[in-house]
Design a protein around this nucleic acid. Structure first.
Lengths: 334, 334
DNA sequence: TTGTACGCGTTATCAG
DNA sequence: CTGATAACGCGTACAA
């Protein structure tokens, strides 16, 4: 910029102005400067701007994993919306590891990011998150509704969602319902889904069989393994609730390989409504999660927090919805 | 940091040293400073360090879309490897839009990123990419092998890969092979795959029917639409090569809905080998692309370029492989 | 082993 | 409308 100023025979200040408030500069001077910038292939330095203004224009996003296509739905829209507002995204994944999560959070603080969007956070990481908030960095949690209302979030109720799906299966006259779900000892989302499942069984007078509950990493392969285990029981369940579509698709495959028909012999329900769910064979009955909307609203909320409105944060709980397709059916119709 | 220095009654320089070269500081002084930092919740400012040293510690990644689970496989490992080296990732998607792509590239320059990983680049954006390289930012292209060897890349040969799959279908005695593929007028990967398909037909003396070639956005829905169109022809193809697994899964669904059996009535082949491919019904025969390896090697290459080794860049072409599963079969066995 | 002083590229403030 | 100058938070010669 200094070079440009010299070559254009104006001061640094004028060059700066001609970039961020051109209306304050005389037209001829402006055009002259722009010509010089073009000629010398000058590229504005955003880092220096951020540094000088003491505010960053990048926001951080922490997700469990980029694989698996469900978190990417919210990530995608977050990126688009942030882009519109002139923000870039730093994305990092934790692989469901709490320590990595707090380390990442620390890194984000060190980078003085403008704000952070957290896709939930591991059980036990509350203090790390509190640290961030206290340090003054705006922070929005997505994918779950928190009890704690000190934090902003745009989420949904994992308990209710899982309760509803379990209830749906019960209404389909299933008495023995398997559950395959993510690491509920570490991930609150999974834990809440487990609680929802339990509560539904209890409310309908069904007894809980611990052998029917299988904890797995939410991948296709482990979903398959979980289902294999369930199917090899002496008295296998007539319905299986896979609390993530990745698990459900894996379960579908296991059933197929064992020659068990879905939904004739066993019903399988998922959770997330990933794009693939409607394209499975059979199409998956699942819980639709408002991934895009969450991402969109999270960015809006974060922006307001960054601008200093919303001193108290904001809590938004969105609805989920059961999408009935073909992987579940009434037990009596078998 | 200044405050820490005051409170600890040492100079700024000593505080700085105690962070990045503790061995140069007397033990007691060091411990004292660390206590003060802890007490005052001092958080190091990486932005300022980067700014001062005139080198960034973030690398930019441009991908067409975060949806669709195939690019995320390389993105995931890129992030992990970069993290190991102390780099963060700024990720942006173009939605296959060339203008957005060059705009993003410009933004990356303005942020003075340490390096850029480009998942291909749109046809017509050569000059934008050249600009970046000339500006001195290390740049590695993935997902395609370029003719141009001024650029570094870690890719594979899209032409050969598509040729092989087409050849495979021909050897299965298919004479009429449909092709559904991405926007080949904009995306070189798609264009090269189209060329591979054409070359194979020609080499085996099959005539090219333009009606059998369908250009679509690489999504599940459009894959389904493409297949529907193919199936509704007077004389539909006996095999369809969907040059992306997203398209292939969509095609599978279209066939199912029309009551056309795969592979008995029609063979369907994909491209990418996304995680879902092995879990489809039927499991998808497809071209495996070395997504993770590409990501890993791209980071390595980029790191060496950042460190100033590799002044001439590096070109790596990896192999693809046909994964035979159950969605294709010999035509005579129908 | 520690301190001083300057530089990094920009914005903001105030004076002209 | 334009110019001069301090400030932002750190790294790093160089001096002590």
């Amino acid at each position: 910029m200094e070079e440009i100023a010299r070559k254009a025979r104006v001061s640094l200040a004028t060059v700066s102005r001609s970039i961020h408030s051109p209306h304050l500069v005389k037209k001829e001077t402006l055009e002259h400067i722009q010509r010089v910038m073009l000629k010398h292939r000058y590229v504005y330095n955003v880092t220096a701007r951020d540094f000088s203004k003491k505010k960053s224009s990048v926001i951080g996003v922490i997700i469990p994993t980029t694989k698996g296509s469900i978190f990417s739905n919210s990530t995608q829209i977050i990126q688009e919306k942030a882009q519109e507002k002139g923000f870039s995204l730093i994305i990092a994944n934790t692989g469901y590891d709490g320590n990595l999560e707090s380390s990442l959070l620390r890194q984000f603080q060190e980078r003085r990011l403008a704000g952070i969007i957290l896709t939930g956070f591991a059980i036990g990481q509350e203090s790390a998150v509190r640290d961030v908030v206290q340090s003054g960095i705006p922070c929005v949690v997505i994918w779950e509704a928190l009890d704690n209302n000190l934090l902003s979030f745009v989420g949904f109720n994992n308990f209710t969602a899982a309760y509803s799906m379990t209830e749906y299966l019960i209404q389909l006259k299933h008495q023995q319902i398997g559950l395959i779900l993510g690491p509920y000892s570490k991930v609150r989302r999974a834990k809440r889904r487990l609680e929802g499942y339990r509560a539904a069984l209890k409310d309908y007078g069904l007894k809980l069989d611990p052998h029917l509950i299988i904890e797995k990493q939410p991948t296709l392969q482990e979903g398959k393994e979980g289902m294999e285990k369930l199917l090899s029981m002496r008295k296998p369940p007539t319905a299986v609730f896979a609390a993530s579509d990745m698990l459900a698709v894996g379960a579908l495959r296991a059933a197929r390989e064992k020659g068990v028909r879905v939904p004739e012999d066993v019903s399988i329900a998922g959770f997330d409504d990933i794009d693939f769910a409607a394209f499975c064979n059979p199409p998956l009955t699942t819980v639709r999660v408002p991934a895009s909307l969450m991402g969109e609203m999270a960015v809006e909320t974060l922006m307001e927090m960054i601008e200093g409105k919303l001193p108290k944060g904001r809590q938004i709980t969105l609805n989920t919805e059961i999408i009935t397709r073909e992987s579940c059916r009434d037990r009596d119709l078998k």
